[in-house]
Design a binder for these strands. Sequence first.
DNA 1: GCAACCATTTTTGTATGCAAAAAACACAAA
DNA 2: TTTGTGTTTTTTGCATACAAAAATGGTTGC
Lengths: 234, 234
Amino acid sequence: MSNPQPTPNNVTSLADRRLLHETVIDQLRDLIVQGELAPETKLNERVLAERLGTSRTPLREAIKFLASEGLVELLPNRGAVVAPLKPEKMKEVFVVLGALEALAGDLACRNASEADIAEIRALHFHMLAHHAAGELAQYFKYNQQIHSRIMDCAGNATLAASYRSLNEHVKRARYLANLSRERWDKAVQEHGEILDALTRRDGARLQALLRDHLANKLVLVMEALDKRKAEAAR
Amino acid sequence: MSNPQPTPNNVTSLADRRLLHETVIDQLRDLIVQGELAPETKLNERVLAERLGTSRTPLREAIKFLASEGLVELLPNRGAVVAPLKPEKMKEVFVVLGALEALAGDLACRNASEADIAEIRALHFHMLAHHAAGELAQYFKYNQQIHSRIMDCAGNATLAASYRSLNEHVKRARYLANLSRERWDKAVQEHGEILDALTRRDGARLQALLRDHLANKLVLVMEALDKRKAEAAR
DNA sequence: GCAACCATTTTTGTATGCAAAAAACACAAA
DNA sequence: TTTGTGTTTTTTGCATACAAAAATGGTTGC
């Protein structure tokens, strides 16, 4: 499960034009976001480098990159740790994400083509189907895609990059939030209104909806964090 | 002017607890923001490392860090270049900064203490003095400090970090914007209104003012970029 | 002149080596 | 048991070594 490498990993396989430290950045980010490397885990360079099939140098470069994203923290002379998942930090992130999504919604209402909106509508109905079937993972996937597409429709790559970077932090918290049916239904309903506002290109309304949507999501995450903390305490 | 080093830089001076690659990050960022390393300059690792008095390893780590901030771009197998200063990118950055500053203004109106506001007022009058004396550099310094303090008063470190990171891009453009007296006066007047709204804790108004203020600044930067481009063309 | 090719040099990307700092450990004293 | 301390081990931070890739430059043929 942990090390499925058919070829020796020091052999550059085929026309592998990607740079090692770039793939290491992605691998490490995934490990952190998926929770495989839990918050506050110490990143032992020797061990991690071996696990990723590389040497310490590219790994250290990747760590520096992710430190700038905020996913790892650098401790002088003591290496790096996976950034802690603090409730206070989460609140901050959600506030900023709220502003960024609101901006994106407003811009999307002006810039999105009809085809863009049609595509988002299609994603929306896929999401509804998975909601109806109770398939949470698939639901999340389409949910993310919808927000992502709205972000893209804003036509501002800098905005999108900032959003993606901050959103990684939220994704880390997601896997521990277990949604009640009630809250889930509410989120889906909100998405209906979001699609509606986008269709009508009502920027002001879409802004407000997205902000509320995120605020509700924050409540979920906070509850989950509190619960985890309570479990850790006993 | 460029290399004032009293001690050999490979000797760790005194209780210098800072890490080499951290100081390199700051030095390199400064070189880029101050324009000493112009946009699109190729970063030759050997040369730069020597200039900064270090080896390639910490330099490469610093480059990766700044790549995540967007100040440098990584070209696979071809090293890194100082990120180009494109008008299109500038527009994007200003739009996002506008949203972030507006948010900060709103939060600051709620969270700032009277002492905070008094401090900002003091900075404001320093700024006015330098404006009256026609001291542009000093004016800019206090101007930045005011915006920075408002950001701090929002009490959201994540917001502040995102802002600072994006603001570095704007600072790069600043040194080439030569302000007409007319526009300068206008900016100062806007700052008066900003201080006023903050004093009255009128969040909605402050948001709008900050957004406009940034929009005007964007116009300035765009003109400067166009001018530079015209000069480069002839 | 200039386009295409090959040899040479430079530069990047990665691995390894080594010194200094931190952590872990062992053991003695309070 | 706890506290302190000296020693060993581990880990980090930086420098360097080396191989692969890209840039450079010179030569030839057109």
